[in-house]
Amino acid sequence: MAEPGELLVIGYGNPGRGDDGLGPEFARRLADQAVPGVRVEIDYQLTVDHALAVAEAGRVLFVDAAMGLDKPCKLARLSPDHGAALDSHSLSPEAVLALAELLYGQRPEGSLLAIGGERFGEVSEGLSPAAERNLDLGQAMFRAWLADNPAAPPRI
């Protein structure tokens, strides 16, 4: 169970698909830092069960790889999408937020950090040099964002 005000960070993607592993790698590095008030989850994709974890969190930051960004990375607020098409096994972050609201009556603040990659699709491990650079910038962007929006430390 999350603490009120806790920040849940979900990094998702497949580390076996080159730069699609940006989200999990971001989350792995963040977990290593053990930041107070920040809980980290890593997964291949978002599914319905993330709605419960999201509902329990005070805030949630989704971290995913992206292509076609006009910047190395972007961080922006999300709104729940109650009309999201659900024709596949995985969900968009907006749909997860909508499910958290619909199922549990919770509407935590949701944001998305999108980090640009360039090598997708091939079965390969490791990030491209461009993705590595963008990941560093994404981490810096996250730190600045967290400084402006500090996570509440867990209650003892």
Binding site: N14, M67, A76, L78, L112, F120
Partner: peptide, 16 residues
């Protein structure tokens, strides 16, 4: 943070 907005990500064209 400003008003909520969406970042367009194209997972389908990306790796699917």
């Amino acid at each position: 943070m400003g008003e909520p907005r969406l970042i367009e990500i194209s997972p389908v064209t990306r790796v699917e």
